[in-house]
């Protein structure tokens, strides 16, 4: 692999087994770091608030991002709208450690995602299935996360996306060489990447989980399903006791196979965020439908 992608996926390797937390100010970033977060995602409103308040959701104020970068020693990520390469240039100029080209913000381009090879800063992108993941990797993403349904407090979509991804990866490994091109066409994915996944049985970049994770058990569930780390958005700072819940989710992500420990750390965490039944949401309100 070219040098740049090695440095980009290299940072994602360092984040494995960890929790990346959404924060909206420097104070929350400090709480996240103290709770054991491996990175923070700086954004103006958590997805649950974007969902309630509506309007256009954009890249955050650079002032806030700089305050967060000054506050913590761990990596700082920030979101741009899908396709908004100028927001990406601004974040790169600020020196953020990772950019999330995110469906949580309102898309800026309804046809194209950002050419992520054009940047030195690494990108993470959301995906619902293998085809979408490989399209993003084909554009230069150095980390993939499930989209899930952000701000819902409901883990069902993240589970669906992670299972779909794993199922399709497994299927690829059973196919013959003559089936590769037709499969690439069917997945809408680059042929070379389809062949690579078929040969290795895994994505060529780290594969994390995001979208609707609200409890330590949710984080552990996604780790069992093959996630290599988790993003927690609204689930922490929309809950009753953010500090305690954040620390518990950190422990759960590492010790996801230890049910006895999960029982201990799940105890008395205070109110979780209020969730949404996704089947009751109209399709146009689903954030995961953004991007292609």
């Amino acid at each position: 692999m070219p040098t740049q992608i090695n440095l980009k996926t290299g940072l994602a390797e360092m984040l494995k087994g960890g929790v990346i937390m959404d924060v909206t100010n420097a104070e929350q970033a400090k709480i996240a770091e103290e709770a054991g977060a491996v990175a923070v995602m700086a954004l103006e409103r958590v997805p649950a608030d974007i969902r309630v308040q509506g309007g256009i959701a954009r890249m955050s104020d650079p002032k806030m991002i700089k305050e967060i970068m000054a506050m913590v020693n761990i990596p700082v990520m920030a979101k741009i709208r899908i396709g908004h390469f100028v927001e990406a240039q601004i974040l790169e100029a600020l020196g953020v450690d990772y950019i999330d080209e995110s469906e949580v913000l309102t898309p800026a381009d309804d046809a194209y995602h950002v050419d992520k090879f054009a940047f030195k800063v690494p990108f993470v992108c959301g995906a619902r299935n293998l085809g979408e993941a490989l399209r993003r990797i084909g554009e230069g993403a150095a980390m993939i996360r499930t989209k899930g349904e952000a701000g819902s407090g409901n883990v069902v979509e993240a589970v669906r996306h992670m299972r779909a991804m794993q199922r399709e990866i497994k299927r690829l490994t059973t196919l013959g060489a003559e089936e590769m091109m037709a499969t690439a066409k069917e997945l809408g994915a680059p042929y070379e990447l389809v062949k690579l996944v078929a040969a290795t049985g895994k994505l060529p970049v780290p594969n994390f989980a995001a979208g609707g994770i609200a409890t330590p058990a949710d984080a552990a569930l996604l780790m069992h399903l093959g996630a290599e780390a988790v993003f927690v958005g609204s689930g922490i700072f929309k809950s009753g006791d953010a500090r305690k819940r954040a620390a518990a989710i950190v422990q759960a992500t590492t010790h996801y196979q230890n049910a006895k420990l999960l029982a201990e750390i799940s105890e008395d965490l205070g109110e979780p965020m209020v969730g949404i039944d996704i089947s009751k949401l109209p399709k146009e309100e689903l954030l995961q439908e953004r991007g292609w």
Binding site: L15, G36, N73, V250, Q251
Partner: peptide, 10 residues
């Protein structure tokens, strides 16, 4: 490698 603050917490 990783984040030393997270490792200490764990």
């Amino acid at each position: 490698g990783g984040e030393s603050s997270a490792l200490l917490k764990l």
